[in-house]
Amino acid sequence: MMEKLFKTLSFMSATLVMVLLASIFISLFNSAKPAIDEFGIGFIKEKEWGKEVPIDNPVSTVVDTTEQKKVEPAPASDDSLEALLGGGNDDTPMKTIYGGFIPIVGTLLSTLIAMAFALPIAMGIAVFLAEIAPKKISNVVGIAIELLAAIPSIIFGMWGLFYFAPLVQELVGGYQVSLLTAGLVLGVMILPFMAAITRDSMKTTPDVLKESAYALGATKFEVIRDIIFPYSKAGIIGSIILALGRALGETMAVAFLIGSVFSLPSALNSPTVSIPVAMANSFGEATGMKTSALFYLAFLLFIISFSVISVAKFYFLRKDK
């Protein structure tokens, strides 16, 4: 009896994981449905966010999905400010356009900057921890790096806004809140995570293999390049992709810095917005189609990070021998 209950409970708990993931998928999709119906796939290349247009004259990209032109009357305009800015005259029926292009680009670019910044340093740290430092130093520095990884991301955001961004601004000019500073702070945040898991991958290289190379007269660098990297290649790439996945979905480290404005960044040091930040800053007050559009973004983000992580897991980090 107890036995059966215990087993059933454990089975149900395990199955809950699947149920949860499926529910996340379904409920995000459902909540995004109005926006998906309204804007279709063209959403991802639509540059406007919250622009009022007359119903008969849809913005270019909506044309792609002309079948779905059974547009309902604009939802009683939720955002009075936008309504004012849109300046539509009361007679023509208006609707509000939401497009995901800018936050998607912002997400990708900030992640790209973060990776470009973090990757070389993280590899250096991993090599240092796995191969160069004497054991004691490696342990101490390793713990320090892991502690850095444990610091809540909101702290990175605050530190980034008040201390790191001003420094970057002094060095390269532009705005303190910008794609560049957001990307760099994001890079600092994923740096320890990437370093720690890359180190773990490198450490799987058997000692004898390294010793055989040393026994042929290889230098440390040659052992790292010819033995450790090829041997733990899959694990290292997997670690990098996991870090990439984390950067794509990170909210708080970016929220303080990216500026949260829906405009394409004209330069590295101008502000923009990313998907998580768009959600963080607009979700609370949004209603109607805007909420749905934000869910559409969340759904896209979920799909993207799901795919990225799956690639890392299935191609590179297969555990079972």
Binding site: V208, L209, S212, A213, A215, I227, Y231
Partner: peptide
Amino acid sequence: GMIFQKPTPFP
């Protein structure tokens, strides 16, 4: 030179 207990072919 040195040869070990287990074969150590490089990848």
